[in-house]
Design a protein around this nucleic acid. Structure first.
Ligand code: FES
Ligand code: FES
Lengths: 143, 143
DNA sequence: AGAATAAAAGACATGTTTATCTTAATTTAT
DNA sequence: ATAAATTAAGATAAACATGTCTTTTATTCT
């Protein structure tokens, strides 16, 4: 469904949001430990998101990654678009070049409904609200 | 969602089902042309399905691939299991090692519902019923 | 029997994703 | 200023998926 990179990214951002108000930046080492992800690979992903201004970072001692209030309000779909693109949101379930009502594959009507349901989920959820659930202990981002 | 190999396989099997009763086997050349897929790669996939007895084949002149009445009754989920395995049916949407109610990721409840909806679709649809729709011109397996 | 046809099998090649390593740049603290 | 910490960037590597090519085997037709 989503690439590993994208899954790590979402978990990382939700975790960062839980640390938003403690005034401490999170190092890549701590972050990857907290979400059970490979450290250098996660670093690459964070760098890309930082360049796209989806997260913030500062170098040097006591530096690290963090997100601000504005960034905590983004929805999952923005992260997915930034990393995996839109194919997962619009592509045909059986790999036809274009998905459309006028040239439907054999499972078009059922699949497009499911795919649109997934899009809706990504569209609704903000990082912040998922972080609140994580803080409350109702969910996990670590194995 | 599904691998390319699996998408080609499903399209190929639905096409084969439309040719079930004409008594002619379908060569890999014709098959890949009819479903717009790379010929040698499709051959590999068909070989694997043939070995797993999901389709049938005969070598030699007038040989090719075909499916019999029994094989036309299989459901999409059998093809998916044969090629991609069960991860797409049971895996966590955010990549946690195990998906469960007791250790849920932040989108577990919504995602598992969507994933189960997809499983349900794969579980319901038989090759044969999708072939009937294809014959009627209500769907396409070619771009 | 021999020739032709077509799948089966296995080796090979390419591309993409995932992952790691090394060096550079930046910031902070002393 | 200097040293230490930490991200940024780029090169490299490993794994996997995708795609192709070549040889072998089985079948059919003449
Ligand atoms: S055409 Fe296949 S999902 Fe729409
Ligand atoms: S734990 Fe992530 S989908 Fe169930």
């Amino acid at each position: 469904m989503l690439s590993n990179a994208c899954k790590y990214a979402i978990r990382a951002l939700i975790y960062l949001a839980t640390r938003m108000n403690d005034g401490v930046k999170v190092s890549i080492r701590e972050l990857s430990a907290e979400i059970d992800s490979p450290e250098p690979f996660t670093a690459k992903i964070m760098q890309s998101l930082s360049k796209q201004e989806i997260i913030s970072s500062v170098k040097g001692p006591h530096g690290g990654f963090y997100i601000d209030e504005k960034q905590a309000e983004i929805r999952l779909i923005e992260i997915v678009k930034a990393i995996d693109g839109t194919q997962v949101l619009t592509g045909c379930g059986l790999g036809l070049k274009n998905c459309s009502e006028t040239h439907p594959c054999p499972i078009h009507s059922e699949f497009s409904a499911i795919r649109d349901g997934f899009s809706h989920l990504l569209n609704e959820k903000t990082i912040q609200e998922l972080a609140i659930e994580l803080i409350a202990g109702h969910s996990k981002v670590k194995n």
